[in-house]
Amino acid sequence: MTGDWSGYSDLVQLSGPLDRDPKIGLMYEGGAVDARDEIRFARFDENYLGWRRSAGAATPDVSRPGGVAYVLGGASASRCAQRLDGVDDFVRVPFDRAQLPGSGDFTFTTSFSYGASKDPQALLWLGGMGTTAPQLWLRGEPASHRLIAMMTTAAGSKSVTTKQAYDDQQWHHLALERTGGRLEIWVDGVLAASGPDSPSSVSETVLFQLQLGGRLGGANHFAGSLDDARLYRQALTESEVDAVAAGRTVWPGPVVQLPLDRVR
């Protein structure tokens, strides 16, 4: 419908339930620069929404039987990993209440390779958007020579940064952890950044979203490859992170596990 920014919206059915071609109306905030530039109205039908089509390409989530994540933008599997183009590719994990980390410890792990672009690039986005919505995100900022992770809860925001961006187009293994009141980034088995977390829940009062390779709202697309992404609802020990990096199983198992080796 639009590639612009959008904000608050209201959806209404414009015709009766027995209408052979029912119409839907959407009033929403939108704008090329800011979501609050204009109030817009769009009219469309169910066919426009693609309700008869599949949700799109999918990659298996082996943490649960039959689980999938959706691969948007045309990303492709290459050398047993997902290659993202930095333009519109990202991976979205469907909502599952069992995934919610809440106020507890967690660990996100993945292997990544990037460096062709110097733009900010999100590896992980979890939760909401804005300055106060509970959320957790991790992105590479090659121009600033760093990885940065930020956590926002009802108690405020905290961030940690590494001293390099690891944008050498070589493979690196990453673990982002909340553990015992700390937020930590581990790269290739070495603690690269550490600081206090923001107490309280990262997944409360917002529509839970978990996606890889892009920020919610369509910015910070990742230009590179991601492999074996996992989310655990516990802090892993250093030896457990090493085991994950080697492809082994750690118990309790992850609530999300995307090998990212194929798309169907």
Rank of each mutant, 00 (worst) to 15 (best):
E46Y: 14
N47A: 15
Y48Q: 07
W51H: 06
R53K: 02
R53D: 08
S54W: 03
S54P: 05
A55I: 04
A55L: 15
A55G: 08
A55N: 09
A57F: 03
A58Q: 12
P60M: 00
D61P: 10
V62T: 15
V62W: 14
V62Q: 07
S63D: 11
P65F: 02
P65G: 04
P65A: 09
V68R: 13
V68M: 06
Y70F: 14
V71E: 06
L72M: 07
G73M: 10
G74P: 07
A75Y: 06
S76I: 15
A77W: 07
A77K: 05
S78K: 12
R79Q: 13
Q82Y: 11
Q82G: 07
Q82S: 12
D85E: 06
F90E: 07
F90N: 04
V91E: 09
R92L: 07
V93G: 06
P94W: 00
D96W: 10
D96P: 06
D96C: 08
R97D: 08
A98P: 02
L100A: 14
L100P: 07
S103I: 07
S103H: 13
D105F: 12
F106T: 03
F106D: 11
T107G: 10
T107H: 01
T109A: 01
T110M: 03
T110V: 07
S111K: 11
F112D: 01
S113C: 12
Y114T: 09
G115E: 08
S117G: 08
K118S: 15
K118A: 14
K118R: 13
D119P: 04
D119Q: 14
D119V: 10
P120R: 00
P120K: 02
P120W: 02
Q121N: 05
L123A: 04
W125Q: 12
L126F: 15
L126N: 06
G127F: 13
M129K: 07
M129F: 10
G130M: 10
T132G: 03
A133N: 11
A133P: 05
A133G: 03
P134V: 05
L136S: 02
R139H: 11
P142M: 05
A143N: 12
H145F: 14
H145L: 14
L147W: 15
A149G: 01
M150H: 01
M150S: 03
M151H: 04
T152C: 10
T152E: 12
T152L: 06
T153D: 08
A154M: 04
A155W: 15
K158M: 15
V160W: 02
T161L: 12
T162H: 03
K163M: 13
K163H: 14
A165G: 11
A165T: 00
Y166R: 04
Y166L: 02
D167C: 08
W171K: 00
H172Y: 14
H172W: 11
H173Q: 09
L174S: 04
L174I: 11
L174Q: 02
A175E: 03
A175C: 02
